[in-house]
Simulated assay, not measured.
Amino acid sequence: MARDVQITFDCADPAALAAFWAEALGYRVQGPPPGFTSWDEALDAMGVPAERRNDASAVVDPEGTGPRLFFQRVPEGKQAKNRVHLDVRAAPGLDGADRMAALEAEADRLVALGARRVERHEPAPPLGAGHIVMTDPEGNEFCLD
């Protein structure tokens, strides 16, 4: 039986990181529970104090096919390289110069949103199509593939 998957990020600022990834992936910040018109209204009803309202956030695929991304506040900062990372498929079906141009354009867009470019890997046929290593605003590595 296939399972749904949620990808969880430990972070310092769940709302900001959720906003970055929503924009990066074409996702949206998950809306409040049914019966509430806003998260503030829902969190008021749940008795969550103001200082705890950025403890978590989530983004979802508006078409319902991609995994939910969940962001949770943790006290410690990032310590080392990620053992798991996302590959953002920014140039499906393209190769060579067209692929790298599409990846460069996406890298520029994401840098404007707060990402950082780490390094470019040139195409190395037959198996290496080329990719760009990036980090999100909190330093989590991901690849534009």
Rank of each mutant, 00 (worst) to 15 (best):
A102C: 04
H131W: 13
G130F: 05
A16K: 15
P34N: 08
E51C: 03
D108H: 10
L103A: 05
R117F: 09
G128F: 10
D108P: 00
P92I: 14
H131C: 07
D40C: 02
H121Q: 09
V111L: 09
F36E: 03
T37P: 00
A107E: 09
R53C: 09
V5T: 01
L94M: 12
F71I: 12
P33G: 06
G96M: 10
W39K: 02
D55F: 12
N140G: 04
E76T: 12
G66F: 00
Q79G: 06
R3T: 00
R68P: 00
G35F: 05
G66K: 01
V74R: 14
G26L: 09
T8V: 15
E51K: 12
F36N: 03
T37I: 00
I7E: 00
P75W: 01
A45W: 07
V88F: 14
H121P: 00
M100E: 05
A24V: 07
L110Y: 03
A97V: 12
P123L: 05
L43E: 09
G114Q: 14
R52Y: 03
P32E: 06
E119A: 14
A124G: 04
E141C: 03
H121L: 10
L43F: 13
D10S: 15
G93R: 05
D108I: 08
D55I: 03
D40Q: 14
H131I: 00
H131E: 10
A129F: 08
L113N: 09
D87C: 11
G26N: 05
V118F: 07
A105L: 02
P49I: 14
T37E: 13
V88M: 14
A102Q: 02
D145F: 13
E141W: 07
E63S: 11
A22P: 01
L43M: 15
L17W: 15
